[in-house]
Amino acid sequence: RPAEAAAPPKAEAAKLAAKGRRPRQFWRGVTLLFVLVLLLAALLAWRLGPFAPTGMGPVRELFRSTLSERAAQQKSSGAPAAPPGPQAAAPGRTPAPTDVRYALEFGPFPAAEEAERVERQLNTAGVPTVRFRQQGGGNLYGVFLEHVPSRPEAEAIQERLKAEGYAQTVLAGSGDNLSIRVGELTPLRTAVQVAEKLRASGHQVRVAVQPGEALNLAIRHGNFASEEEAGTRSRDLSQKGLSGHRVVRVK
């Protein structure tokens, strides 16, 4: 049996080959372990920094330079840049001060007679004034004495009204439809007050709305640079008995 006799030599050869590979595998494992130990030692030395053992400085520097190069490559490859810091705002220009002015205002007066009375009182006390017209935003009304029989009779009534203190009268209408308007066109409240005084004197009057828009009159005094200065002047006038005014901004 030649085949059976050849089998043992082949088995012996396989055993010898396996025994020859074992020393090589052993030394290969030892070498790999040694390399791992060196790498761990180098990493430990880099982490320890100045406390690393003498002789590990070059290894530590090698690791640091490698990491720095990788960080630079990542930054150049499109890593998001850090947001810019806040920039100092450019100093703005201080706005030029506006020329604000203040005055003392009396009124508003719906009737010119009342405004003239206050203005005379102020001027007599040596207080210069300026008169202004303001939109009243309402209707105008007139006070009329109606059913005047004739023009001569109307003229006689006008003379009596003038003697009673109603200096301004206007003859309106024609023929048998004559009437006398007393005073100026005023807002309703003022017209009603005038009508009540005339009725108390025995006149028959009527208040009627007229075309146009009511205007109020205001009287102003002074041209002050500050509200405090205007307030000081206001208190001075109040002590003199000239009240009924307020501080207003005019510019």
Results as ranks from 00 to 15, higher is better:
L242E: 03
R206K: 15
E228Q: 07
Y141K: 05
E227P: 02
I180K: 00
A200T: 06
A218V: 02
V205C: 00
E146H: 05
E227M: 06
Y141R: 01
A154E: 07
Q168A: 13
K240S: 11
E159M: 08
S150D: 00
A163S: 14
H221I: 01
L178V: 01
G142I: 00
V182I: 10
G212A: 09
A208Q: 15
H203T: 09
P211I: 10
L188P: 04
L237P: 07
Q210S: 11
N216T: 07
H245N: 05
G212Q: 07
Q193S: 12
R199E: 15
G138T: 04
V209M: 13
K240F: 09
K162T: 10
V248A: 02
A214G: 08
N216A: 06
A230R: 06
L198I: 06
L185T: 03
E228D: 03
E213R: 12
E229I: 01
Q158T: 10
I180T: 02
V182F: 09
E164H: 10
E196Y: 04
N177F: 14
K197T: 02
G142T: 02
S238R: 14
H221R: 03
R233D: 10
Q239P: 09
L217N: 04
R235K: 14
N177I: 15
V194N: 01
K197Q: 05
I157G: 11
D236E: 15
A195P: 03
A172H: 15
K240I: 09
L217H: 05
S201Y: 04
T186H: 06
G136F: 00
L242P: 00
A163H: 12
Y166H: 11
Q210R: 15
P149F: 09
V170I: 10
L178Y: 02
G137H: 00
E146C: 05
Q210N: 14
E153N: 12
R160A: 14
G137Y: 02
K162P: 09
G244I: 01
T190I: 10
T190M: 13
A230T: 03
L188V: 10
T169E: 00
Y166R: 09
G138Q: 01
S174P: 10
L217Y: 00
A154R: 08
E227V: 08
R199A: 13
H203Y: 13
V182M: 07
I219K: 04
A218D: 01
S179Y: 04
N139W: 14
A218G: 00
L161M: 11
G212K: 08
S243W: 09
H147Q: 11
R199H: 13
L217T: 02
T169Q: 02
A156Q: 12
P211A: 11
V182N: 04
R151F: 11
A163V: 12
V143Y: 09
Q204G: 12
G138I: 04
D236Q: 15
R206V: 13
